[in-house]
Write a protein that binds this DNA or RNA. Structure first.
Lengths: 357, 357
DNA sequence: TTGTAAGCGTTATCAG
DNA sequence: CTGATAACGCTTACAA
């Protein structure tokens, strides 16, 4: 076996309690013995066994993250934000991914029992009730971008509906007549919210939603590519394509390029999420900014705060909604064409609209 | 507190030992008692406490992952591969990120003590000796894409040198005279290996390396953008830009577009890693395929195998090198121009070279 | 200021 | 087949 606290105690000529006190600064220890203990601990490269520690104090010093997937820039950004906040609070991160049904989520939740103090769960493609069934009791939990759930949890979501509605409004405002939508995966909460926003904006503009312009995607580049191909095959092709996330917008851009069409001149393309790469695309992608990393940070900090307060989370669940704001870049044709040698970079053809109409 | 094995035992009218036996199928139990125990366990939604479990058996059923960063598609792909393999073996994943120095890595390693059975460490910007200092003794460890380390660990790396050399050879072969390089971060092992490959290819072609064509980057899109801007400011601009990773290539493409230059007609651009988005870029990016997810899977499976064998890892360290092969797409100008309406997708303007010259 | 000892929740050994 | 009970490594009253 590896070195334990008893080894340190023996070599330092003290009891294990004293070693523990020194290492945790949990009680006063004579200076001389302290330095001796530290000395020995360093020599032995002692590191306390976290499992034993978790068991003894009744907390693990770790947070669990359960995600539907890990593909693409969205999840790494989210995880990055979560990790940053967790690390600030000296907490470890347990990550489990590719859970698309409640059974899988339940299994992941159970596996984390005892190793984490709290949970962040993103499960956009699971229904509220079936999610509530597998969520743990007595473990503070933050739900990310999911449906509303009848359970004692915190919920943080992005304004998917409002963002999509605003984006569609914007496309209408700049004169687009035929606005197509590449939707997200079926039964996915975020996907349906965004679709709802798209339809609402069409409706309020007094336009009917043309079914052929609303195609099903799956949030991947390939899905966006296929969606765009389908749309281009229409007799009367759309003048704008709104992809329900940036990954699909990337795929759509690729399809348009292959078809020899120019963006935004022939067809405008916009996305959702504003993943980091969006502004570097060709052309730079108009999108809906979500602040993915900030969302992750927020989720972690809400969870940490819940853990900090002594009172068990018997309070009513709190629900927070992150704003989603438009970021207009070249791909929608609403900016002036880029000058050939821009002096400054960012300010050129990018603007954020706080309250687009 | 939450429900423990004692609660289950009491309600089922058996001892905790029996409950444990039932739940782990670790010893024969009478059918009748088994069903009764399972019944009670389900009713109580019992899930064993993993910390206690880890402590008792001397294994945690979890793997640790230590990464330098979490930004961009590279790391999410890597993590995706690792997670996939870990999940197959019913292991959890502990992830800790943004560790660029040995101190931080040491802290992360210590924090994982007792919660993981093995470690995967990616630390390209830490020197071998200082890494060896903080690596744990007695914990099976896989080093990813790092320098060779004098410690009892497994090492898995990508052929960064060979890949970069082959890519440069390719650019030379298709007639490029002035080939620029946007290097990775300083003191980064992968960065320097790739740079070495670039220089080696120039050298073997009897060309001197022009210092002004070799600019420093940092593996981010922004770094690539700045690098390209610097290169375009040269009196005699390069005909090809080799970015040391795809993220920087993305930035370079963006800079070229802003400068009104066409890729590949005015300047060719190539990258390294072949992140998933590369083939969807505009134009599709020629790159060096690394098989990122497969690399992660491999790392996890090597680790799991090491954990499975009873013998403590006293064997000599094993080092494996993943091949890196060119993927030629449009951005380097070595493919025929894309037809306007390609029938098939992938085969059109993409080809993989196994043994490029 | 320090030591002793009782847990923390499971697993595993050893008797029955 | 089943039940006590001793670990596992650490923290934390409670004493001294």
């Amino acid at each position: 076996m590896t070195v334990t606290i008893r080894d340190v105690a023996r070599l330092a000529g003290v009891s294990v309690a004293t070693v523990s006190r020194v290492l945790n600064a949990s009680a006063p220890v004579r200076d001389e013995t302290r330095t001796r203990v530290l000395q020995v601990a360093k020599e032995l490269r002692f590191a306390p066994n976290s499992a034993a520690r978790s068991l003894s104090r009744q907390r693990a010093g770790a947070l669990g993250v359960i995600l539907p997937d890990l593909y693409g820039e969205f999840f790494s950004e989210l995880l990055r934000g979560i990790d940053q906040e967790a690390q600030r609070a000296h907490h470890s991160l347990l990550v489990s991914s590719s859970h698309h049904d409640s059974r899988g989520i339940g299994a992941a939740v159970r596996a984390m029992r005892g190793r984490v103090d709290g949970l962040m769960v993103m499960a956009p493609d699971v229904s509220g009730p079936s999610l509530a069934e597998v969520l743990p009791h007595g473990v503070p939990t933050v739900l990310l971008n999911g449906p509303e759930v009848d359970a004692d949890v915190y919920e943080i979501t992005v304004d998917n509906f409002g963002g999509a509605r605003d984006m569609t409004r914007h496309l209408i405002a700049v004169g687009h007549e035929r606005i197509a939508f590449i939707a997200g995966a079926e039964r996915n909460h975020e996907a349906s919210e965004r679709e709802r926003g798209y339809l609402a904006a069409l409706h309020e503009a007094g336009r009917g939603a043309e079914p052929s312009l609303n195609v099903r995607g799956d949030f991947t580049e390939d899905g966006g590519w296929r969606g765009a191909i389908a749309l281009l095959a229409l007799a009367d092709r759309p003048s704008a394509i709104f992809a329900a996330n940036d990954a699909m917008a990337v795929g759509a851009l690729s399809a348009l390029r292959e078809a020899g069409l120019s963006v935004p001149d022939d067809v405008a393309v916009v996305g959702f999420d504003d993943i980091p790469i969006a502004r570097f695309l060709n052309p730079p992608l108009t999108s809906v900014r979500v602040g993915i990393a900030a969302l992750g940070e927020r989720a972690a900090s809400v969870l940490l705060a819940a853990l900090a307060e002594r009172s068990p989370p018997g309070r009513p669940p709190r629900r927070a909604v992150f704003p989603a704001e438009l970021v207009i870049r070249d791909s929608c044709g609403a900016t002036a064409g880029p000058p050939r040698h821009p002096a400054r970079r960012r300010a050129r053809s990018e603007r954020a609209l706080s309250n687009p109409s």
